[in-house]
């Protein structure tokens, strides 16, 4: 509850900040709106042209892309500012504030990274999922919905774990520009169906390094074809999270702040 309250506070704060500069707010809103409307349409034409991914029909790939949009929207909305915040604050000394608030530092870091404009991406993704599900005639049972939410939640947990590792390394190394790119590339690997990989590659992304939790598995849940092996990713994501928190706790003791 406390975490939700803190997210609520950050959303309110960021929204107030965004509307303080009215013209900037309106222009950003229009650009986000155009981008989020145009992106699914372009994707539809692209995947129709290339006949989708192997083993996936065009409609299924569009659903996959809608889930990707929805997922991207969620993580950008909740944690879009985390990486920049921590890089900037650790380098310039503002990071000290995190330790002065009466919450775990990770809670303080992760509940201050809201990007309000990404809400439009969430809405576009959600609308995309609804439209394609309707076209595909997907019957959404409670079980499907719960499973979708469970995997989505575990995907967020796994993503947060990677961000925690990033934060811990930033605290230690202070400046690590390329680390952001590594995270982006990891996310890029997760934005394709794991069916593109075979044998160990597929198991790797499904269980060992479960980036399939982000888009592949939730899409498969909606399409009704989730593999049994996918359930192991729930355990792996939680293990990743525990290890990331332990790594953070170890690193944070080495934080030296900046001078003065």
């Amino acid at each position: 509850m406390r975490v939700i309250k803190l997210f609520g506070l950050d959303i309110k704060n960021k929204f107030q900040r965004a509307i303080e500069f009215r013209l900037n707010f309106i222009i950003t809103l229009i650009i986000s709106l155009c981008y989020n409307t145009a992106l699914p349409i372009f994707q539809f034409f692209i995947f129709k042209g290339i006949n989708g991914f192997p083993g996936w029909t065009v409609e299924e790939v569009i659903l996959f892309q809608a889930v990707l949009l929805f997922w991207t929207g969620i993580i950008e909305f909740l944690f879009g500012g985390v990486r920049n915040n921590i890089s900037k604050e650790v380098l310039h000394g503002g990071f000290d504030r995190v330790f002065l608030w009466p919450h775990h530092p990770l809670v303080s870091i992760f509940t201050r990274g809201v990007d309000v404009f990404a809400f439009l991406t969430v809405v576009a993704g959600f609308a995309g999922i609804m439209i394609v599900s309707f076209r595909l005639g997907i019957q959404m049972s409670w079980y499907t919905l719960l499973l979708f939410i469970l995997f989505l939640f575990c995907g967020i947990v796994f993503y947060v774990s990677l961000l925690i590792i990033y934060c811990a390394l930033t605290v230690l190394l202070i400046k690590m520009d390329r680390l952001q790119e590594v995270l982006d590339k990891i996310f890029f690997f997760g934005s394709f169906p794991v069916d593109l990989y075979h044998g160990f590659g597929k198991i790797f992304f499904l269980v060992i390094f479960p980036s399939a939790l982000w888009i592949h598995i939730p899409s498969k849940v909606l399409l009704g074809g989730v593999d049994e092996i996918s359930f192991y990713s729930v355990i792996t994501s939680l293990l990743f999270f525990m290890c990331a928190v332990l790594f953070w706790e170890y690193q944070v003791k080495k934080y030296t702040s900046s001078g003065g």
């Binding site: 003791k253 030296t256 702040s257 001078g259 003065g260």
Partner: peptide, 13 residues
């Protein structure tokens, strides 16, 4: 002095 204040305010170990 800043190090002492930072330790006493829980920022660094």
């Amino acid at each position: 002095k800043s190090t002492l204040v930072k330790i006493l305010s829980g920022v660094i170990y």
